[in-house]
Structure formats: C-alpha cells, structure tokens
C-alpha cells in the first residue's frame, strides 16, 4: 500500500503562536480520515499543510513521497490534491458550467481557458459531472442563484473534473442542514471510494464521522489527542476533545 501522506514532527507557527505542534502521522492511499477538534484546534491549518497551501515552520510533509516544500501550487499540485471548503469556494459571477470546468484549469493553457470561458466548448464534461451530483438542470445558471447545498454540489462536481488523488475537505457540510450534509458526504464518498482516492475531512459531527470514515484523528491545541479506528471512537472521547479544561 502506498502512502498518501507522511508527516514527521511538523509544526506551524504564526508569529509567536504555535498552531500545529510536533504532529507526526501517516495516511495510506485510499484511506478515509476524519479530523475532529474544537474551533481553533488547528484543523484548518493542518488541512492547509496537507494540501500544500502552506509550508511547515518545522518538519516535513511528504505527499506521495514528494516533500510539499518542493511542490508549488498550480498544475502539478492539482494532480495530487483537490480541496473543498465550507463555503465561499466558488466564483459567484460565473455560470455553474464554468465553475465546474475550472477543475480543468491545471491541464489547460491560457488560450484554452479563454476559449472555454467564451464558448460552449467542453459542455459535455461539465454536463456529466453535474449529472453525477444531481444538478443536470442547472448548467447555465449563474452560481449565485443556487442554494448553499446546491453550491456545495457544484464544488464536488469541480472536484470530479479535477480528478485528484487526494481530496481535502475542510468542514464541507458545516453550513448545511443534516439531510443536505448527508447528501454531500455521500457524494464525497462516491467520488473517492470506488476509485481508491484518499479523503481527509475536518468535521464536527459524530454521526457523519462514524458513517463515512474508517479512521479518526482528534486535534486539540495543535496536537494529536487521539488517532484511532472509527469503531473505537466513543462519545466520551469526543467530550474530552471538545472540553475547555484539559482532562487528559
């Protein structure tokens, strides 16, 4: 089994604040990992380190055996990692189609990008991705007309087009109601599991964690508090993780 990630003693500091402290972990390719932790625990920073959007202050992050320090954002990185966030992730003024096709930007040169923006070329690609997320009828709408749940489906469709090896999801369902949240998580599972893609997501929900993930990492004050198989996770573990006072 190849490793998707290997982190050794990784820290990340912003000024004098240590946001991530000496985190070491590895993730197998194809694994589905949930990251839990209270707000401010460092989940977003950890995910941005994994997505190679920021570089560690100390230690190294290896992504499919490549040190993320040598990976610059752009075309090469987009083959490895795709990112989906809570919201505000899409371009409101563009059509649904163009937002979905933006998943191809890493493969396209500048002229191809302009051509796609101005013509209806590649509509079959966006149509099949939108069909998979159940939004076939919204192709030509402006994105701002869609509801929050629909917008998150568009973000998933963009990931389908991008087709990376790893998907990093930072609270992808935080602003959605339970039914919408379940739907989005199912979609993320559908686009990762069959093709053996790695899925790493920050969440707050015990139910979604146990339903969709096989491994869970608890993060507290920038440190790994626990790292276990989901079947071993108890609500007591969660209460400890979210408690204000240090109980462990």
């Amino acid at each position: 089994m190849t490793l998707a990630y290997r982190m050794s003693n990784v820290s990340f500091e912003l000024g004098d604040t240590k946001i991530i402290q000496n985190v070491s972990l590895s993730v197998d390719s194809g694994e589905r990992v949930a990251i839990l932790g209270a707000s401010g625990a460092g989940k977003t920073t950890l995910l941005r380190l994994l997505a190679a959007q920021i570089k560690p202050s100390a230690g190294d992050v290896f992504l499919h055996n490549e040190n993320t320090r040598n990976l610059n954002s752009g075309a090469e990185l987009s083959e490895y990692v795709g990112v989906i966030n809570q919201q505000y992730d899409l371009i409101q003024e563009l059509s649904v189609r163009n937002n979905v096709l933006a998943g191809n930007l890493g493969r396209w040169n500048i002229w191809r990008s302009i051509l796609t923006l101005l013509s209806s070329i590649d509509s079959d690609i966006s149509a099949s991705a939108l069909e998979r997320v159940g939004l076939s009828d919204k192709t030509h709408q402006r994105l701002s007309r869609l509801s929050g749940g629909e917008q998150q489906r568009v973000a998933v469709a963009r990931l389908i087009v991008q087709d990376p090896l790893i998907i990093i999801a930072d609270e992808p369902v935080a602003s959605l109601d339970p039914t919408r949240a379940f739907e989005i998580m199912s979609l993320l599972e559908n686009i990762t599991s069959p093709s053996n893609k790695t899925l790493i997501a920050a969440l707050h929900s015990y139910d979604l964690t146990t339903q969709f993930f096989e491994r869970v990492i608890g993060l507290k004050s920038g440190k790994v508090s626990f790292d276990m198989r989901v079947d071993h996770l108890t609500k007591v573990d969660l209460e400890k993780l979210y408690s204000v006072h240090p109980t462990d």
Binding site: A51, Q53, S73, G74, A75, L77, S78, E79, V81, G82, V83, I84, N85, D89, L90, I91, L94, N98, A102, G103, N104, L105, G106, R107, W108, I110, S113, I114, L117, A155, R158, Q162
Partner: peptide, 16 residues
C-alpha cells in the same frame, strides 16, 4: 485559493 488548488495559474485565476 480554491481555483489555485484546482491548478489555476495566476493569469487563469485572474480570468476565472
């Protein structure tokens, strides 16, 4: 940032 993580270069980020 999301566009860049989809592989967009600076000029593509400007256009899209």
């Amino acid at each position: 940032r999301a566009l860049q993580s989809s592989g967009a270069s600076n000029i593509q980020t400007l256009l899209y």
